[in-house]
């Protein structure tokens, strides 16, 4: 009950409205199985139609203006579902999408067994070969998305999973900030975010180099993306102009 009460506080968009809505997450007992609480929302683990499922619910951000909040939550939910499907069509491994619940701002998807790249780097358990293989897969996946005009928008090591199977397939998750774009600038920024996530947090230069090598091989537009990447990087570094 305690957890439920906490969730209510965030969803308090009018008592009558609440009564009409069916809260599937509650029915499935999701609120008792909180997996994590990120910056954007909460993630629950449930059994959905007999499958292990991850439910990602976006919550109201009470600090921001209600109009802005509704706009952002709605557009990001729709965009996330659409982008995940687009990535799959482009041949990038993502979790399977099961269901989108507009009213509860929740997305239901397959639970991928495995660890995040962040955990793997922290554990320091990857061999030189693992690093090369995983780096190459990440580079290829990003290249496929970019060539297909999809920008992930939040390529951090927590959003890259490695599936627990023989192939150690790299699965890209969290398309919450994804957008459609064929502009090299956006691709450059995407790569820059990835570079910073890998090298700043984990100081793992070698891994990022494998990513870039694979990206170069897999993308037909690598040269324009790389040029913009270098430009964005320079801009980032110069950002300390005035006190």
């Amino acid at each position: 009950m305690g957890k439920r009460g906490f969730v209510d506080k965030h969803n308090a968009s009018g008592a009558e409205k609440q009564q009409k809505q069916v809260d599937i997450i509650e029915k499935l007992g999701g609120y008792d199985n909180l997996v994590s609480q990120g910056a954007e929302g909460r993630v629950f683990a449930v059994k959905f139609c007999g499958r292990d499922t991850i439910v990602k619910q976006r919550f109201k951000k009470t600090y921001r203006h209600p109009t802005l909040d509704t706009k952002l939550t709605r557009s990001r939910l729709g965009m996330e579902a659409r982008s995940m499907m687009r990535a799959r069509k482009l041949g990038v491994a993502t979790p399977t999408l099961y269901y989108v619940d507009q009213q509860q701002s929740a997305i239901y998807m397959e639970k991928v067994p495995g660890k995040s790249l962040k955990e793997l780097i922290r554990e320091d358990s990857m061999s030189e070969k693992d690093m090369e293989d995983i780096g190459a897969q990440v580079g290829k996946a990003v290249a496929k998305m970019h060539d297909g005009g999809l920008i992930h928008g939040d390529l951090t090591t927590s959003n890259i999973l490695v599936r627990d199977d023989d192939e150690r397939t790299v699965v890209i998750i969290d398309f919450g900030l994804a957008s459609n774009s064929i502009i090299a600038e956006d691709k450059g920024v995407d790569l820059y975010v990835l570079e910073r996530a890998i090298t700043v947090t984990h100081s793992s230069q070698a891994l990022f180099e494998h990513v870039m090598t694979a990206y170069r091989r897999a993308s037909s537009q690598w040269s324009s993306s790389f040029n913009k990447f270098a430009e964005v990087r320079m801009r980032g570094r110069k950002r300390s102009m005035i006190g």
Binding site: G153, L177, V193
Partner: peptide, 12 residues
């Protein structure tokens, strides 16, 4: 409240 461009790119 006037709707304005909202640009967050990852952490930037």
């Amino acid at each position: 409240y006037i709707d304005m461009p909202y640009t967050v790119k990852g952490m930037d």
